[in-house]
Amino acid sequence: MTTHSNNHYYVPHGALYPVVLSAGLLTLASGFIFSVATDKNKDLAYLQTPGKWMMYIGAAIILLMTFKWLSAVVVESITGQYKKWEDKSFRIGMIVFICSEVAFFAAFFGALFYMRIISVPDLAAFDPIFTPYKDFLGTWPSAGPGGTVLGTEYKPGTLTPMAAWGLPAINTALLLSSGATITWAHWGLLKDNRKQLIFGLFLTVALGTAFLVCQAFEYHEAYTHMGLTLGSGAYGATFFMLTGFHGFHVTLGTIMLIVILLRSMQGHFSAKSHFGFEGVAWYWHFVDVVWLGLFIFVYWL
């Protein structure tokens, strides 16, 4: 058997980051469980404070390890350890990772469609003689018919649904144009025009931040003026979980963009080798597409 020797795959040195990161996740998870241990187990209230501290410690470990790990990767990248072969691994890996994120959002979209099309209309469709939900119409948006939930009474409040053509439309414009600016920055990188790269990235970060500010304002409005909360039945739960997880992803994306911006200002990335930039750009476009789904199905229709 012959061999070919023009290629040598880079296998990185071992590092403690992954195992410490896992320990951080364990600390964060158990801390979270202790910090919410009261409502189901009244006698466990004393665990709340230690739980919170465990959460802080766990989060700190996670942040530190992520930073150290990614720094090591950046160093490996700029010292030229990664060539075409490794680069292709990162690209395929990033695509598969984004697919898994799509599946995660699909679960919440699935819940939205199920509640809107099946469970809410079904609750209103009982025989009028026997129905426990007399005046329930089953129209969307719905906070549910109300009733006793595990011993506590739940009364749906009157809620105003979030209108699509106010702030959400502005947010759509913000995110869509941020998708354009990051592509413009990418063009700059490909032409070796560093100014265009840095300015494009700066604009993208600014648009992402503006989006987050608008969303914070929107949440504030919902809670204070519209009677729309996480506990507002089917509509409230799907609205806040979908937009909340999306907002969380925008936050992560913005942080990643800031890192990429700082790296660009340090002179990292070249026209030929810039997986770090492209990975973030793909992630940002993914977040963008999820928002379009949200805008159509959560706000508009």
Binding site: V36, D39, K40, A107, G110, A111, Y114, M115, I118, S119, V120, D122, L123, S142, A143, G144, P145, G146, G147, T148, V149, Y154, P156, T229, L230, G231, S232, G233, A234, Y235, G236, A237, F240, M241
Partner: peptide
């Protein structure tokens, strides 16, 4: 369990069967 959503509660328009689907 902890934050008052009603995904799996009929009172809020949810459905325990939905969990089985997911």
């Amino acid at each position: 369990r902890h934050f008052g959503t009603h995904f799996f509660d009929a009172a809020g328009g949810g459905d325990p069967i939905m969990f089985q689907h997911l």
